[in-house]
Design a binder for these strands. Structure first.
Length: 446
RNA sequence: CGGGGCGUAGCGCAGUCUGGUAGCGCGACGGUUUUGGGUACCGUAGGUCGCGAGUUCGAAUCCCGCCGCCCCGACCA
């Protein structure tokens, strides 16, 4: 993409309403525009990151054997009367009446609807296990939306639902989600710690929240800091191997890590003092096992091998997709702007032409542009007629992890400069070598 | 929902107390200049002062009502 033809409305000054760094940078980098309290338009740059995050979520869900579908944002109230949640959910649920006076709601979650789909089409244990998920907009009418996309009223969420014949199978689904989530967050450059959480209105005994440590997090967290060193890495976990999956979960949940809701002072104090940490975290996901809560109330049963009809065992699992933009920025920025991890960056690399209009510089930039594009690494080429300082400032603000700087001085020596946004370190090399290096950097992220 | 604050040009703000035809910086646009980290200068455009109803010769400013947004708290898969 050539910046002169793109739509990137960056702001030089901080918008007054944005208090935390991720919100400020998303507004300044032209990623979002607020339309109402807690409701945002996604401008082109923001949409690119949102799409990258969705790509990773989709890939990891499919890798774990989960099946995508898409349910609507609007739901009929009757479905929620069956589970009893129409009355329980409270003012947070946006209720709508259509022209025929039918009661509807903008879905805050989809347990009822997925259960309805399941009961209409699945009748036998032979169809299990089954895990369906979607990525869809949700609406929760928060009393006080804040922090930009971190706590919006409208937000994009991946929610998945597992259906299993018995509790053991359902707990395997729970574990499978935990591992797939760990992999998902790591690909986004995040350290998200699974913490035992309270179940809330969804119910269920087994639930973990995934927390990204950040000063601006809304949850107080208590943990043994050795959990932050745990990495799933490149290991290839067989998602059908119950023991192997459970082993990974054990590895990540044995050390103490809890939110204030489930905090146990005595257990916390047993941690060696050097590792005992209190901090704050951003919740970026949660997994639940809740058994037959919905299947019983809504009649979702299957015929078991012995011929009896049993309510299906379920769980639900969510990732806050739009919130992740904020969480990633909170975890990865400096005083100049965002620093995107390679996995989610809107463009893999930026090209800065230091002297627009100089025939050698223009030609070298277009050469790089074509070579990178051909290699599947779409660059953002700053071809505006701006001074070098303005171009650098824009690149730093929008946070592309790699930048190739092209100017007449370097070209006289046959080199361009490849710079890491994270470290600020630059290296001179030929344009061909720069393309090869960028390709190599991204080889592990695609 | 309790408490606090704010709505004036695209963005950041002054002007409101003490009523008299609306200003600054940044940005945009045009020009000159400059050119390896947000150049300097000159010029131009851009505003129903959140909305409505009052008081007044006259309202951004005073009064009343409403709307929107932000912050703290409570709430919150």
């Amino acid at each position: 993409m050539r910046l002169s033809r793109y739509f990137l409305p960056v702001l030089k000054e901080n918008p007054a309403e944005a208090q935390i760094v991720s919100h400020r940078y998303m507004l300044r980098a032209g990623m979002i525009k607020q339309q109402a309290a807690g409701i945002y338009s996604w401008l082109p740059l923001g949409l690119r990151v949102l799409n990258r995050i969705q790509d990773i979520v989709n890939q990891e869900q499919i890798r774990a054997g989960h099946i995508p579908l898409l349910m609507p944002t609007l739901q009929p109230a009757d479905l929620w009367r069956e589970s009893g949640r129409y009355d329980d959910y409270g003012q947070e649920m946006l209720r709508i009446t259509d022209r025929q006076k039918r009661e509807m709601l903008y879905g805050p979650t989809n347990e009822e609807m997925i259960t309805d789909i399941f009961r209409a089409h699945v009748t036998s244990y032979k169809d299990l296990p089954l895990t369906l998920y979607h990525i869809q907009w949700k609406f929760r009418d928060e009393m006080r939306p804040r922090f930009g996309v971190m706590r919006g009223r409208e937000f994009l969420m991946k929610d998945g639902y597992n259906f299993d014949i018995d509790k053991d199978a359902a707990l395997h689904a729970y574990n499978r989600h935990m591992v797939s989530y760990l992999r998902t967050y790591e690909r986004m450059g995040l350290t998200a710690i699974p913490m035992r959480a309270a179940s809330g209105p969804i119910g269920g005994d087994n639930t973990h929240e995934f927390l990204v440590l950040a000063q601006t997090g809304e949850s107080e967290v208590f943990y043994d800091d050795r959990v932050t060193a745990l990495k799933l890495g490149a290991r290839d976990v067989d998602y059908d191997d119950r023991a192997a999956v459970a082993k990974v979960c054990e590895e990540f949940t044995t050390l103490y890590a809890r939110t204030d809701e489930t905090h146990d002072e005595a257990a916390f104090n047993a941690i060696p003092e050097a590792h005992r940490k209190v901090g704050r975290g951003i919740e970026v996901g949660q997994i639940f096992y809740f058994g037959t809560k919905y299947s019983e109330s809504m009649g979702a049963t299957v015929v078991a091998p012995d011929g009896s009809k049993v309510p299906v065992e379920m769980g639900s699992h969510g990732i806050g997709v739009s919130r992740l933009l904020g969480a990633i920025i909170e975890a990865s920025h400096d005083d100049k702007g965002i620093i995107w991890p390679e996995g989610v960056t809107p463009f893999p690399v930026g090209i800065v032409n230091l002297k627009q209009g100089d025939s050698a510089a223009d030609a070298a930039c277009m050469g790089l542009y074509k070579a990178l594009t051909a290699a599947g690494l779409e660059p953002l080429y700053d071809d505006r007629d701006e001074r070098a300082g303005a171009k650098f400032a824009t690149m730093d603000l929008i946070g592309l992890p790699w930048r190739i700087t092209v100017g007449p001085r370097g070209l006289e020596k046959g080199v361009v400069e490849l710079t890491s946004r994270r470290t600020g370190e630059s290296e001179e090399m030929s344009p061909e070598a720069a393309v090869a290096r960028v390709a190599q950097i991204y080889a592990g992220h695609r």
